[in-house]
Design a protein around this nucleic acid. Structure first.
Lengths: 112, 112
DNA sequence: GTGATACTTAGCCTTATGGAACAGTATCAG
DNA sequence: CTGATACTGTTCCATAAGGCTAAGTATCAC
């Protein structure tokens, strides 16, 4: 739970940067090398690498080095955590009736 | 489009902090005052206020002052932007990326 | 082996973030 | 009018984020 919260911190923070979101968009259509990914951006490579590391640390991508080329791929599972958080959030505000109903049902079965 | 990206920056960044996510969770079950919201947190009020301002700037909450009490409420519409971004992302990796669909994706939630 | 390619490491800089304290201002309750 | 309540404004601090350059390492192509 605590760990889940820290993961969310990292994930949301990773998504908060347009460069990183663009990289994720690009990786959505298939793996790519660092330099392929970096090409569209007007940025020094070490700066770009920081974004890649950030994305990898957040778990949104995974990377692997073969020879001198590091290949990056998207990690779809991690996106599900965002989905889950959104669902939970909506469950709170849209599920009020449900929650109330559940509460009523529980108390019907378990009277004082 | 440009504006949409900047909004996403703010939204994701707002979501990247556990205090702010907790506030959103609390506001999900109804509006509350600043001090009500602040009570659970071991934090000076001015520090807490920064989070409230951040949330308001991101558009995830809206606030209103009556007398000396500022009441905060969740702004559900803004959460939809996250949803939309996730949908677009999934659309890419599920291969639904022909020209028409890309066009629709980019424009369906273009800001007002 | 040489040179180009593809990162990587190490510093440096500026701004933003998340926290603190302390001193206001504006209401409301009596 | 007075005091408590509910913020608000200001300033400070330490660390992290996002950019840069310059120099290093490890492959690969010839």
């Amino acid at each position: 739970m605590e760990q889940y919260q820290e993961q969310l911190n990292g994930i949301f923070q990773a998504l908060a940067d347009p460069t990183r979101r663009a990289v994720l968009g690009r990786l959505g259509s298939g793996p790519a090398s660092i330099s392929d990914l970096a090409r569209p951006f007007d940025m020094a490579l070490p700066s770009f690498m920081k974004h890649i590391h950030f994305l990898e640390d957040s778990g949104l991508i995974r990377t692997e080095k073969h020879g001198r080329v590091r290949t990056c791929a998207i990690e779809k599972k991690q996106f599900a955590r965002v989905e889950t958080w959104l669902d939970a959030q909506r469950a709170i505000w849209e599920g009020r009736t449900d929650r109330l109903e559940k509460f009523v049902m529980r108390n019907k079965d378990k009277p004082e």
